Computed example of a mutant assay.
Amino acid sequence: MPFQKIVMPTMKELFVRQMENMILSGELSAGEQLPNERDLAAQMNISRTVVNSGIQELAKNGFVCIVPRKGTFVNDFLRQGNLGTLTSIFHHSGRQFDLSMLTALMEYRSINEQKCARLAAERHTAEDLKHMFELLEQLETCCDPEECAEVSTRFHRAIFIATQNLIYPLMYNSFQEMSLAVTRILFRHIPLSHVCSAMRAVAEAIAERDADRAEALMSEHTVRCSQILLEQYPFGSAGTEAGGQAET
């Protein structure tokens, strides 16, 4: 069994992690002003450089708002957050899902994957189709879990790219880490062959430009996956961690 290298977090990472924990736990409330950088550095026994860099990252991830000449304020992240906020919340939970986050993610994926299957059927190019079926064949023959995960990710992205809509594949990439974590859980309860069969049916409908059928098949697949996940909730810790099998 290969062992992974142990990497110590930097002071900036520790600072950001502590601040995120305080915000997510409610210890720092929305609208609250943080101490200035000098005072914060002194209280936490770190350099102002670390504080400044960490505050910038917190702002980028939607946790705080920097107001020139006034200071730094804690955001209401549900109203002012972004995808970086969501990723940080996922990491804060130890890369595990509570029921509300799992349900929210599956609802989001279901709606978007159905729509993208329809658009891909209507708009795909010959090159899109060629790439999609090449990836599908790789998925059907791969055995290594990590390879399956990588190929499946590229296959789903290929459908999103085939929509010819710039936003869809970029949004897909943004949710990739959480989608992979969910898929590792799912693949403990559904055979890869079943997923491949469902995805081949979707790909064939896309190839035939049958948008209604492509959307319906993707809907059937995503609903089934959601049902399986909800039936198996709560999961064991091994199934919720990043790293593992394939994405559906």
Rank of each mutant, 00 (worst) to 15 (best):
I228H: 04
C196N: 09
M11V: 08
R69H: 12
R224A: 13
V50F: 03
Q80M: 09
A104L: 05
E204W: 01
Q245D: 11
V50N: 07
F175E: 13
I161D: 14
F63E: 11
F77T: 14
L230S: 07
F187T: 10
R69F: 10
L102W: 00
M218G: 01
A30C: 07
L229M: 15
A149C: 11
M11Q: 15
M1R: 06
M171S: 08
F175Q: 11
H131A: 12
E241C: 00
I55P: 05
I185A: 13
A42G: 03
L78N: 09
N112F: 04
R95E: 00
E208K: 06
Q138W: 07
T85L: 05
Q114W: 01
Q138V: 02
L180T: 02
H91S: 12
F97T: 00
C142N: 08
Q245G: 10
F160I: 02
E32M: 14
C196I: 11
R157P: 02
E32W: 02
S193K: 13
C142H: 05
Q80I: 02
R79T: 10
F133R: 08
Q176L: 15
K60A: 14
T125R: 08
Q96E: 00
N21A: 13
E20Q: 13
E134D: 14
I167H: 06
N61I: 07
R184N: 15
T49G: 15
S93H: 13
V151R: 06
V223E: 15
A104S: 14
H92A: 00
T248L: 06
I206R: 00
A198V: 02
K70C: 09
A198W: 05
A121S: 15
T85Q: 05
F235V: 00
R154S: 12
Q33R: 14
E215L: 03
E247Q: 07
